[in-house]
Design a protein around this nucleic acid. Structure first.
Lengths: 200, 200
DNA sequence: TTGCATACCGACCGTCCGGTCTAATCTTAG
DNA sequence: CTAAGATTAGACCGGACGGTCGGTATGCAA
């Protein structure tokens, strides 16, 4: 029982990839299970063999996406000298990634509610990302690169800033223009964020 | 034919208000026509008497909302001396308004598509708002208050900044905290935007 | 009073959706 | 070779959805 199991994993991954693409492009509600099956070239039974529900599928995607995302970011961050560099790197990264499930997220939470099991799981996943951002902002404050303002608010503002950008840039301009825009936006943001000192 | 017509208008307005609240809170797809009817205390037939389809209803809301919004903003702006003040006023305004159909918007466009009749109407409505922002940013550049950067990009960044903020602040904090946050965010933004000169 | 447009109701229709279920097929351990 | 289990297909189900339709109530104009 090996080749079979491997193929199964492949199928599951394929379904996940296609689902992500569809949710990301069309939204949660509008994307039907059948759509996903068609795109993945598999049957409904097969999909439901691998995922227990549409909600579960979405949550898996969300989880997986954020995990991969921060694995890559941590790797990138480790090569940065200053937190300012990290911020640029973060912007650059986000610009290339077309924030995968962004539009579907609010839809999802609107549907299942914040109090539901799925809702709580969702919030937990998103919060982890928020905490990651908070961490590197606090580094910036500690090193003296960033102004010593309320950490939560600062993190919130910065998260929202990039979230807002990604929201529209992905379908208003191409990747290259998007990258440039993020760079400029980061520079602009840094004007307000920076203490003027160049770091630790 | 007066009292009847007046009542009709009232009903239509009531439906629109309730629909706006629901779309805004739950999203487009999740809000059913029946939900809206229940909230408005009217029948489905009545709703379809006043609006020709769900899409049409949404578009009316979008149109109406943006129009009202900018009427108020123009009024507020007219009392501002500098463009910097206008930016603060804009932030303050947005913070209090919980950007009404925000979450539903992408869902809507994802459903109908950019190329459809409804999609084009939608884009036209949103673009008008973008142009309004662009206008007052360009004033800021002209007056020497803002840096002389690419107008489109600047407008894009600023729009996205506030859009991102409104997206999360509305369900992460109360009105008062939100207002404070917007003020700080605007100050931060202005660091990058401002030339240092105090205006014309 | 009658005729008519407007405003309103809710049962109903076809469609599609998420999810289930059964049966078939493939792989591999023994 | 075969039993057991993993994997897949797709017909099927109940229900919710957007939208329609035949009909009713209301108030104005004549």
């Amino acid at each position: 029982m090996n080749k079979r199991r491997y193929e199964g994993e492949q199928t599951k991954k394929n379904i996940a990839d296609k689902a992500k693409e569809l949710f990301s492009r069309k939204g949660y509600a509008v994307t039907s299970i059948q759509d996903i099956c068609d795109a993945a070239g598999c049957s409904k039974g097969n999909l439901y063999y691998h995922f227990k529900s549409k909600e579960d599928l979405f949550l898996c995607l969300e989880e997986q996406t954020f995990t991969e995302w921060w694995e890559q970011l941590d790797e990138i961050f480790s090569r940065c000298e200053t937190v300012t560099e990290k911020l640029y790197a973060y912007g650059n990264f986000i610009s290339g990634i077309e924030r995968p499930l962004d539009s579907a997220e609010r839809e999802f939470i609107g549907k299942v509610g914040m109090e539901s099991e799925a809702g709580k799981k969702f919030v937990a996943i998103v919060n982890r990302s928020f905490e990651n951002i908070k961490k590197f902002i606090s580094e910036g404050i500690a090193s003296g690169e960033f102004i010593n303002e309320n950490l939560f608010e600062l993190t919130f503002i910065i998260s929202c800033f990039y979230s807002g950008l990604s929201r529209y840039s992905s379908y208003m301009m191409d990747k290259e223009a998007s990258k440039t825009l993020y760079r400029k936006a980061t520079t602009l943001l840094l004007q307000g964020l920076s203490t003027g000192k160049s770091g630790a």
